[in-house]
Design a protein around this nucleic acid. Sequence first.
DNA 1: CAGATCAACGAAAGCGCGTTCGAACCCATG
DNA 2: CATGGGTTCGAACGCGCTTTCGTTGATCTG
Lengths: 351, 351
Amino acid sequence: MASVTIYDVAARADVSIKTVSRVMNSEPNVRQETRDRVLAAAEALGYHPNLSARSLAGSKSFVIAAFVDAALTMDHWRSERGADYLSRIQLGATTACREAGYHFMVELIDHATPRVRQEVGNLLAALHPDGVLLTPPSADDVVVLELLASTGTPFVRLGPENAAGGGLRFPTDDRAAAGKMTEHLVGLGHKKIAIILGEPRYAASRARREGFLAAMAEHGLSVPETWIQQGDFTFSSGVEAAEALLSLADRPTAIFASNDDMALGAMAAIAEAGLSTPEDISVAGFDDSSGGRFSRPQLTTMRQPLVEMAAFAAKSLIEGAVPVDCDQDVDADHLPASDLVVRRSTAPPRA
Amino acid sequence: MASVTIYDVAARADVSIKTVSRVMNSEPNVRQETRDRVLAAAEALGYHPNLSARSLAGSKSFVIAAFVDAALTMDHWRSERGADYLSRIQLGATTACREAGYHFMVELIDHATPRVRQEVGNLLAALHPDGVLLTPPSADDVVVLELLASTGTPFVRLGPENAAGGGLRFPTDDRAAAGKMTEHLVGLGHKKIAIILGEPRYAASRARREGFLAAMAEHGLSVPETWIQQGDFTFSSGVEAAEALLSLADRPTAIFASNDDMALGAMAAIAEAGLSTPEDISVAGFDDSSGGRFSRPQLTTMRQPLVEMAAFAAKSLIEGAVPVDCDQDVDADHLPASDLVVRRSTAPPRA
DNA sequence: CAGATCAACGAAAGCGCGTTCGAACCCATG
DNA sequence: CATGGGTTCGAACGCGCTTTCGTTGATCTG
């Protein structure tokens, strides 16, 4: 291999290796002239510090790891999350890491097996990551949380169900996002809007429900009980809920489904009933899962700003902005809001 | 941190650190009794060898990296590849790596910028990965290929367009897969099958065409020129091709689209014409992109065995089965075949 | 001008492990 | 008993870097 070392650079710049190290780490107390000389030497030699050596000698490992559920990754098309969930996190985190000379590593962990403790412990001990990014459901896995705390690894939690467990939390803004979608429908002129709720044991379901109801109330719009249908985040539950809605004497003109799969189900039921979306009934989803991008019509939905969240999370971890004993939500002004993705499934109601 | 080191284990097992090292690396020349004693000590102490120290001292880095196109990751829903492309590779590779105590790291690289050379060079120098996994279009990037060769890093290429460039190549089995799909349609009873070709500059398009024609010929089925429509992998080209097909006096009873987007377009055109899939015309796609999973009807398609391929690729790299100057295709019997995913869009032709 | 302070840099000591090389031990043979 | 080959083990060195702890000279005080 014979890679170029810090000694080579030091020799060429005619300084000690310590000075080269100082320059490479942007430390103070180096004259600008010296700094330039070192940089030039490094450039000329094609020098890149060895990651392993840096982490062995120093206190940082230059690695940010993400723990993502393996089962979720395999079955994500059946899950609430979009299929590109991993890709977007990877993009945001990798970008932030590269700028700082860090590396992002995603570790798939299977929360179903009892070996989680051993696997995660192993990863933590071998990698000594400078920070860990937790996604649902890892963000609420007590074993993982405990291991992280005991090894003194700073961590952030994306969309935690539970505040307990420490770390820097990035709560999903489901409530606000649901409100935003409701505003969109109301803005289109809809007054009779139904909602299909998600699996109630998820906090997200409850938050979306609340956001919807609050926004409706704010506009003085009432929502009869019959327009609030229970679903469970699956396509078929969306079909059933929509069928129930269609059979009503007083039909809503728009349906807000708590996720995309159910929205797709609702559109299918509407088509089945000989009606069309959005002409007869508008349908809105939530999550921007990939299914909605190719549906006919394409689905209007809310997209979580995952790329930005992952980037900010990684950046916080890298900058040491997340102390080991951190236990708080991220500042509200740093939590990017979900984007409303308006496509074809929503339109003004029939006059 | 005060992590437990190899010295602690050595002391507890009453052997030298070299012996502990031998045990941890499964080297020979250690009595079974000694081995057990060391293992017990390590277990009791919760010892995990430090990755950085291992890679610094030894010749292996225990890291397998994948270079994936960043733009593709962002826009994958518009691409030929499925949205879960990254997830599946991650799953396969991570699994294979974990079994061997290795770590898998995906690096997003933007082939559009001129800084590719610097970024990739940096990654290679800093990480010293024991092997690299290249996916399209990285698998055909000459800069990347050259850098890999010059640093002496073994690499495998998934779905390369070009044989030139070295490495262990995992050619896509488009030809065979297209044949398999054709068999499926013929097996259903179809005799009049049309094909919508993909963008001709991709080798995959040509291979799928050949696989289809060969399978048809094998069954003594003829394919008139008018049943061979040119497309370009986009939804709209699928619509147009299908419209042309539907206007024919002698209509096919099944359409084999060279990818899912075009298949979706074909189904849309069929619906537009007042016909239905699969009752009037069967439609088959290719790639198992996520759009087809939620379409109505759900699309019959071919799925590339990405998980298995990535796992085998990682394993080959780890086992050192890929020499630095490797320049060949993987053994045919190790190349997992694409899976036929039969869903609702294909059925026997009307009697 | 003595003394104190501070910026700029360097020498040497590890970080935790793999590796090299030789020492110690075993049993079988002459 | 001496010799030999194979097996099993350990001391010491070094991977490429960060750190700690100087050392030097320059600038600042009273």
